[in-house]
Design a binder for these strands. Structure first.
Lengths: 207, 207
DNA sequence: CCATGTGAAGGTATTCACAGCC
DNA sequence: GGCTGTGAATACCTTCACATGG
């Protein structure tokens, strides 16, 4: 089944596997079975094997998967094998936390520029990154930055996205709590932090 | 179809609808059609009507849905109609940003306590909330707090969750980039910010 | 006439069971 | 014996088409 489109749900799980493989590599063993990986990442072993079957034979029956080889293959599929430079728009509380967030590097993502509309912030440095005025967004194309993280207030989210699209950005992670429109060629993922929390009470027993 | 289990995917969309209804209420009109709501929130109108059909008749054929009534009903289903008090564990960069985050209130969620293991932080106030030592977690049950947000380093995430479970917490939003285990009676949602970004390059045209 | 609500159809993802291989 | 890889079976979700109601 090597020549098959990878289902979206599988793509959603690939970073989970990658994270699990990296942390389990710390333990020194070279191979891991779908069973052990299953308990480690919280996905059924059937599911894991099915997911991996979409892109080739990586496991050895009786042994398991070679951790390093599999991790590299997942990185290649997700196109994380070359470091991706990203820009952050909006250096408020959340934006500052994102600049300091250590987790992006493990996925080959690097925030190399930050923009804010507040003149009192422009020029300052946060975590080694100098804050530029939002007008500088237009220079992203020439700087070879095609990935952006939007952490601005909801009211200006759409205009920010429009500007990013105009600057040639191809992928946007949007933290503003609203839908934003973009041409089909630009992939937008919206992540509303509060919304995730809003689902919890539904699943909690009567409180 | 009034007596039917609500599918998980529908539950996942309910907060999106709720958010959309609240923002469209700002515009003054009293009713909204599945069609208009669809373009506003980015979900097909068929899907919206199907979703709403799982919990009763709220629309008026030829008119649409009463915005206020529908919003209240969604809040009731998600159990957001009474304010939920939540605790934050880990007041680092991300934790501080979450304390300052204005978005929780719209879903009836209120962070009323914060804990950290760093003695130099304990006693300080962030956004009006005094930071307590993590040992205080054990008092959550008696304070009537059953919801927790975990923003601690990965290495101590599991022990933090164990402690929260012991303190009677029933729902946990985990920002640590790893799976955490908890009894089935406790609902855990893990949100790894970097992982969302890791999916983007896959969907971006060759860069 | 316009928009909802819903069975039915269609599509997608998960689970199962086991053949094949080390 | 143990573990992978995968067709088949099942469950789930989405889309459609239209009857129903204001």
């Amino acid at each position: 089944m090597r020549y098959h489109k990878i289902p979206d749900e599988t793509v959603r799980r690939l970073p989970i596997y990658l994270r699990g493989l990296m942390f389990s590599a710390e333990k020194g063993s070279e191979h891991i079975s779908s069973q052990s990986l299953a308990t480690f990442v919280g996905v059924r072993s059937h599911q894991i094997r099915k997911d991996f079957s979409y892109f080739g034979d990586f496991g050895t029956p009786g042994v398991g998967y070679n951790i390093g080889k599999l991790a590299r293959e997942i990185q290649r599929i997700l196109r994380l094998d070359v470091v991706k430079r990203a820009a952050l728009i909006g250096v408020g509380d959340l934006g500052s936390a994102l600049l300091a967030y250590p987790g992006f590097g493990m996925y080959g993502l690097d925030i190399v520029a930050a923009f804010d509309s507040n003149p009192t912030k422009v020029g300052a440095k946060v975590n080694g990154i100098g804050i530029e005025d939002v007008s500088g967004i237009d220079s992203l194309r020439s700087r070879g930055i095609f990935l952006a993280i939007v952490a601005v207030p909801r009211q200006v989210a759409q205009e920010t996205v429009d500007r990013l699209v105009g600057a040639g950005v191809k992928g946007i992670l949007n933290f503003a709590p609203c839908r934003v429109e973009a041409p089909k060629r630009v992939k937008v993922i919206t992540l509303d932090i509060a919304m995730e929390l809003a689902r919890l009470p539904y699943y909690m027993p009567a409180s």
